[in-house]
Design a protein around this nucleic acid. Structure first.
Length: 112
RNA sequence: AAAGUAAGCUGGGCAAUCGCCGGUGCAAGGCCGAAAGGUCGCACGGGAGGAAAGUCCGAGCUCCAUAGGGCAGGGUGCCGGAUAACGUCCGGCGGGAGCAAUCCUAGGGACAGUGCCACAGAAAUGAAGACCGCCGAUGAAGGUGCAAACCUUACAGGCAAGGAUGCAACGGUGCGGUAAGAGCGCACCAGCGGCCUGGAGACAGGUCGGCUAGGUAAACCCCACCUGGAGCAAGACCGGAUAGGAGUGCACAUGUGGUGGCCCGCCACGCACUCGGGUUGGUCGCUGGAGCAAUCCGGCAACGGAUUGCCUAGAUAGAUGAUUGCUACUCCGCUGUGCGAGGCUUGGGGUGUCCCUAUGGAACAACAAUUUCAGAGGGACACGGACAAUCCGUUUGCAGCACUGGAGCACAAAACUCGGCUUACAGGCUUGCUUUCCAC
RNA sequence: GGCCCCAUGGUCAAGCGGUUAAGACACCGCCCUUUCACGGCGGUAACGGGGGUUCAAGUCCCCCUGGGGUCA
């Protein structure tokens, strides 16, 4: 995932949490908000309650791989996303995570 | 072979496609940015661990003075060595556990001082003290006696052996000794001190001596040694912005800060509060090092030395993921086959009981009959194990092969870098030693 | 990533190394009241885990576990 698609600053995260809208499944929560740029950005938040460092890193890598797959359809849409993981996300396979991300993006009307 | 014990190694493998993060070479222009700087192309090659973890110690490195003096505080604590250093490691000593291999051991000082030792107990450290108890030699009172002496009382007094308390009671056991006792004397044992021998030393062995000294220092403490503080969010550089403001208070070195325990010393300088304003960009530090591997040499070992070869992550919301094939290991299910085991049936054989047949012996004086015993043959019923054949079934349990399908595959991820310690860990492999058994 | 702190009933919390580990709120039972509340009496319930020092550990030492704080 390229640098311009990453959400990096703490104030950006806070802005998405405060101003944005949200939707959730049992494993993931998606927050989104419009931004002033010309492209989308994504940030991931996995707390220590989800698991140890190995499990948290694995989840983040898999979520990044999900967004890589949906990259062509998201390209050019000016929005910031934050994906928050819930506890049972540590047991999920890649396919389950991808299904959840797709459902959430459809619900947020960013994908058809 | 089994049981045990110690140490070491490994931590699935081979590939394909799409992505992520560094590096090297070529190319030299575009894009982003105010700038510093970043990014984009092609090719090649690289990309988590033994604990990367916990952050418990030690070092390098950086800043504070080149890290200085004193006090306080903290740490370590048998001896010798290794090391850059250590609370680590190696070798030994003492003590403890084990048949043994081996393992454990914060293991200096309790005559420098202070504190504490609850409850119980007479008494918990001062050579003090006596509840039950022992004694009545000596003294006293009484009695018997001519006297010597003996008896009684347990009053004066003597004792600490035995009982009782407790984690612990002022050396232990035995003999002598005594009125009863006591290191009072002796022997052995434990402990203490001196001397001798061995050893580098901790210490060990021997000998002599006086006869005896509670525990606790992971209580304060004493002694010896070590220790300045902070930490890569350290710190350095580049670029930008704002500001060199306003008000109030203190002050001219006796002040404030650096300096984060205090004092001295050193360095720098007006300082504190309120109001107002601004920044939270980039690069370096950042990976060639007390580095790794092999061989040889020195050393019991930790480790050291020499030669040759090798380069092996460097992110910053934080780089390893997705899809797929083959394969190793473990488990589960299904199908088929064989073996073993189970069940049914049949066959021959066995044992027991009953009946029949003939024979022989015994009981009655004899014969017959009867009763009883023995083995033989035949029949019926029952029994359980083994053998052979056939069939059934794979429900339960065991072993192996092939095929197909599924699941699992530990603990856990660098964040400046090393040396250790501690903790977590599926499975697999190797080696040494000890004890017991078996075979030769 | 570095550096610190804490852990005692359901909750908030005391506790020099020495009895049966205070206390408050909550909970349960009884009394009081026509009833509820208030009040009174009684009761249940705890030292995060594992080693070590000590005669004796909630307390002292070491190692884990789980919470919390802080930095530019």
């Amino acid at each position: 995932m390229k640098v311009e698609h990453r959400l990096r600053e703490n104030r950006d995260f806070r802005r998405v949490f405060n101003r944005g809208r949200s939707s959730a499944t049992d494993k993931l929560v998606l927050y989104w908000a419009r931004n002033r740029g010309s492209n989308f950005r994504v940030g991931f938040s996995v707390s220590r309650k989800v698991g140890n460092a190995v499990q948290r890193n694995l989840i983040k890598r898999r979520l990044r791989a999900c967004f890589d797959r949906f990259l062509p359809e998201l390209l050019g849409k000016p929005a910031d996303f934050v994906v928050v993981c819930r506890k049972n996300a540590s047991q999920a396979t890649y396919q389950q995570l991808e299904n959840d991300v797709l459902r959430l993006l459809k619900r947020a009307k960013f994908m058809i």
